[in-house]
Design a binder for these strands. Structure first.
Lengths: 233, 233
DNA sequence: ACCTGAACACCGTTCAAGT
DNA sequence: ACCTGAACACCGTTCAAGT
């Protein structure tokens, strides 16, 4: 997407006089703000992936000079932190919705989490490496509270939360990167298929081949929760 | 580490005559080879992290001209693929070692996998995004075979493998990135502590605070395997 | 067959300067 | 207070050329 930038003709920098569109007027754009920067960063990441986010490109999308961002934001790193937490937007569900079996509650929360990350495929691989923003902490708190209410002792909570976290992160990061480019997927499958004689069990399991990602995610999660339920208290 | 590069004096490119050390002689170095490139890339990644790997820097370490690598390797991407699989070096254990309880076998394999990745902290976050090389496939095959031998039906193998994979990846990628820089860790903990009143359950679980990573990994893994064992056949 | 430097089109960030 | 361009020290990769 994102119309190919017209080979920037910076030949004559005499914009002062007849510059056809100043930053402000170009869509009746608001002035720069942290909010606008973060929202645009998320869009850019959605459209172009992690490598596509560039301070210059981001500023361009905002109709701002290349260096203007640095007044609002410390770093490119900081932009990643903020975009990540924004992508994981989370509002706690109404109390009423929590009346079900706790297992079902946990599954719902984690499926929501996963869907959210899959909508922003760059987010999964960023999450474990970056600061934990309020949205992420909010999700963790809700998960913890659900487990605690279900009877998991405080001493076991740490393990339980991390196990579920690990599972969701691993599943989502893998999934997000496997179906991103069909080229890669085709190549990976071909490679797997090509080497099958050396990996007979992998072949029998049809690993990577018919991928009911959603069902697999759910089933594995059930196993994990089952383990937590029988031993976890 | 890595002695600061002496501000490259490329002023006078008349190396032809008295260049004091040609590429070949500079440690009695062998000529370039894919093997040497990959090994050096792993070293560089270990020392400087993902962002520290640069084609130019890599060539420098090899005592080669900046562009020489491109004869042996297609891409920087390819270097990552090769370095990753090299870091996950795997030789199947002797059959005799597999006589134990299958649960114990699985735990051992996954702990070895994890330790291996923790030795090269950049590898965990790379693994889910890159091609599956022979070492990775070898590990997956061994895991599959162990599960299969334990009685997991072919139809359930896919879920079982992915669940374990997800858990190991998630756990390792998180761990590798949390204790990498003490600054970040301190900051993360401070942030968590600072926001505690809003996240009471997280506080009670002491999430992130006293981190017995190894024990937590093991316990969560036991839960997952327990779940697989009771429902997985 | 193997290696090389110059060159191109990019990066993130500093800084002194504009309004 | 907010925004800017020029400049610096880097990138990955192409290409025409050397041995």
């Amino acid at each position: 997407m994102a119309a190919k930038r017209s080979s920037t003709e910076t030949r004559k920098p005499r914009r002062t006089v007849s510059s056809p569109q100043s930053a402000q007027q170009r869509n009746g754009e608001q002035p720069l703000s942290l909010q606008r920067i973060v929202a645009t960063a998320v869009d850019l990441l959605d459209a172009e992936g992690v490598d596509g986010l560039t301070m210059r490109r981001l500023a361009d999308r905002l109709g701002a000079g290349a260096m203007s961002l640095y007044w609002h934001v410390e770093n490119k790193e900081k932009v990643f932190d903020l975009a990540l937490d924004a992508a994981l937007q989370h509002r706690a569900p109404p109390q009423a919705a929590l009346a079900l079996d706790w297992r079902e509650d946990v599954v719902r929360q984690l499926e929501d989490w996963r869907v959210c990350m899959l909508r922003h495929p760059w987010s999964a691989s960023l999450l474990p490496r970056r600061a934990l923003g309020p949205n992420i902490l909010g999700r963790l708190e809700l998960l913890s509270a659900t487990l605690s209410r279900a009877g998991v002792a405080d001493a076991d909570l740490n393990v339980a939360i991390w196990s579920l976290w690990n599972y969701v992160i691993g599943a989502t990061v893998t999934r997000a990167n496997f179906d991103r480019s069909d080229d890669d997927q085709a190549a990976a499958q071909k490679r797997v298929t090509g080497l099958n004689e050396r990996y007979p069990t992998i072949e029998r399991s049809r690993l990577l081949l018919d991928s009911d990602w959603d069902g697999t995610f759910r089933k594995g999660l059930d196993f994990l929760i089952g383990g937590l339920a029988t031993e976890g208290k």
